[in-house]
Design a protein around this nucleic acid. Structure first.
Length: 336
DNA sequence: AAGGTACACAACCGCTCTTGA
DNA sequence: TTCAAGAGCGGTTGTGTACCT
């Protein structure tokens, strides 16, 4: 291709636009439409290159542009879409009426990326950072500092921290375990038709090990709404998984460390009650997303008001993605 | 009050993709 | 099929402003 840039002619103005220039551009486009951007500056009487005019119009002057702060719902939508699309700002912008790709890109770089990093997630992969354990003690201490000051003695809190750190380590280990097992096993586990507590030969030991780990969580934090009975020992059934995902995790604000998406929760009407009691962050399993699915994702995260269910989006062909429920976005722990 | 620093956001740059001759 | 113009996209930079020392 190799084409010289449109703006390399000398004498054309660069830099910030003045209100006068804005008025000229808006007046011209309202009257004539933009037509050929390259020809526009000359016709409108602007000493700018066509590209600069186009950018100014599309990113700033267009009448349908929504300005002002991003809402929590918009944040959630951006996070969900970014988890699937990556830095496809224009594609993300197409699901946020009135927002430009440039605006979303800037907002991501200045706010959301930092927020994810502070939560211990890689902003590109949306997965827990592998070095999370290096900062785990600090994170735990910070997160619970206020609670410590308000409610607990030092000794009591130290014990709780220790137990929860241990649980976190186990949780991470469990996650790796499921990653190792791979999607086939995961889907077997999650498939209701396999709820007869069976797994392929050779996996039973690992499964049993995982269950033991999970069972140990129930003893860590009796106060975190673990009123339901512990699951039976043996293989993980779909019922067990439901139970575990709704009741077991002691961290009310810690995301499910789901990695490979075939291991997905499939909430039912009945589940919703227990979720209210135990607000465990939920998974989003995006399909091999076509635009309609992405649109659904955006709509779902916008229209569902309940913070616990806000990100309960599932598709026929789950892939891998963590969603970002409003519970994080609203959590003072992650405000900065 | 002055200088330094960090942050937010508008704008630019350079590349790729699309389209039409 | 080739080539050039037009348009779009994502990454980066520049600038204004708020905050801190």
């Amino acid at each position: 291709m190799g084409r010289s840039p449109c703006c390399d002619e000398s004498g054309l103005k660069k830099g910030p636009w003045t209100t006068e220039e804005d008025e000229i551009l808006v007046r011209y486009i309202k009257k004539h439409g933009h037509g050929s951007w390259r020809a526009l500056p000359k016709l409108a009487g602007l000493n700018r290159c066509g590209k600069s005019c186009r950018l100014r119009w599309t990113n700033y002057l267009r009448p349908d542009i929504k300005r002002g702060k991003f809402s929590t719902e918009e944040e959630s939508t951006i996070l969900n879409l970014h988890a699937v699309l990556g830095n496809k700002w224009s594609a993300i912008a197409s699901h946020l009426p009135g927002r430009t790709d440039n605006e979303i890109k800037n907002y991501w770089n200045t706010h959301l990326k930092k927020k994810l990093i502070s939560m211990g997630f890689d902003p590109m992969t949306h997965r827990p950072r592998t070095d999370i354990f290096s900062s785990l003690p600090q994170l735990m201490v910070l997160a619970r500092l206020k609670e410590l000051m308000d409610h607990h003695s030092l000794e009591e809190h130290a014990m709780r921290l220790q137990l929860q750190a241990e649980a976190m380590a186990k949780l991470q280990y469990l996650q790796r375990l499921f990653e190792t097992l791979g999607p086939t096993t995961s889907s077997l586990i999650m498939d209701p038709s396999t709820s007869n507590n069976s797994l392929p030969n050779g996996l039973a030991d690992i499964d049993h090990q995982a269950l033991k780990l999970l069972s140990s969580f129930s003893q860590l934090d009796q106060t975190s709404s673990c009123n339901a009975p512990a699951p039976n020992s043996g293989s993980l059934s779909a019922t067990d998984i439901d139970y575990l995902s709704n009741n077991y995790f002691p961290f009310s604000h810690f995301p499910d460390l789901q990695n490979d998406g075939d291991f997905q929760t499939s909430p039912t009407e009945d589940d919703s009650n227990s979720m209210v009691q135990a607000p465990v962050p939920q998974l989003t399993a995006f399909g091999q997303a076509g635009d309609s699915q992405l649109a659904n994702a955006a709509v779902a995260s916008k229209t569902n008001g309940d913070s616990c269910n806000n990100s309960l989006i599932s598709y026929d062909e789950p892939s891998c993605s963590i969603s970002w429920p409003d519970i994080f976005l609203n959590d003072p722990m992650f405000q900065f």
